[in-house]
């Protein structure tokens, strides 16, 4: 397929009505090609997570079109959007969003259950993914028994285990020390080299430096969009 994988055409997302209306996104347009590694930066409340949620088919634009693989998906049924999430997207949320009282292994396994993969394959892939984020010794731990950084890594393992086309990571290093952060960035770069498109929100210039492209949001609009040869 030619053309961009992800495309926003004049996308707006408004919350509330009348006086209290918040324009989290205000007529945003951009596109991301297959295989890109994009970092999104911007002050708090500038609409980064809102954009990620729309890209992730979790939220819909209030106005404008969102095209995934050239197809308008913002107005498709919940069912169709669930299938896109299942088969093409891996999400690393700002707040991890792991299942409580469920082991790390089972958390990583979850998306593959909905894909209908056989159990043996799910387990093998989950273990491999946990090993890749350095948590092979913690497979049986539940989120409550893991540190914030470890939970973050379980969330990353969950996103990458299914080998999605796109990984959407909302501040994947927000809870990690510099050393761990670099490891995670190396991992994302490796995944990107394997062909996975990566869109990452971050507050840290250092981390954004790993990406091949930087988009900056301010007040729900894009103020900067740089493609850099300096990216990895």
């Amino acid at each position: 397929m030619d053309g961009p994988l992800i495309e926003f055409r004049n996308v707006s997302r408004r919350y509330g009505m009348g006086e209290a209306e918040v324009r989290a996104l205000d007529g945003v347009s951009f596109s991301i090609n297959r295989g890109e590694f994009v970092a999104i930066m911007g002050p708090s409340g500038s609409g980064k997570s809102t954009a990620m949620n729309i890209i992730g088919c979790l939220d819909r634009p209030s106005a404008g079109d969102y095209l995934f693989g050239g197809v308008e998906v913002g107005r498709q049924s919940q069912e169709a959007r669930a299938l896109i999430r299942r088969h093409y997207l891996g999400f690393v949320f700002q707040g991890f969003n792991l299942l409580d009282r469920t082991s790390a292994l089972e958390n990583v396994e979850l998306p593959m259950i909905y894909r209908g993969l056989p159990r043996a394959e799910r387990l093998a892939r989950s273990r491999a993914a946990l090993a890749r984020v350095g948590l092979d010794g913690r497979a049986d731990h539940q989120p409550a028994q893991l540190s914030g950084g470890q939970q973050q890594r379980v969330a990353i393992a969950r996103a990458l285990a299914g080998e999605p086309a796109v990984i959407l990571a909302d501040e994947p290093t927000g809870n990690l020390d510099t050393h761990r952060s670099r490891e995670i960035m190396e991992l994302l770069c490796a995944l990107n080299r394997e062909g996975i498109t990566i869109v990452m929100v971050t507050h840290e210039e250092d981390m954004a430096a790993y990406a091949g492209r930087l988009i900056v949001f301010v007040d729900g609009a894009i103020t900067r969009d740089d493609r850099r040869a300096g990216g990895v």
């Binding site: 069912e79 299938l83 999430r85 949320f93 969003n97 998306p111 909905y114």
Partner: peptide, 16 residues
């Protein structure tokens, strides 16, 4: 509710 949200976000359909 949050659990349901997580399941939906990783690709569960409403029917599931």
């Amino acid at each position: 509710t949050r659990e349901i949200g997580i399941r939906l976000s990783v690709g569960a359909t409403s029917a599931q």
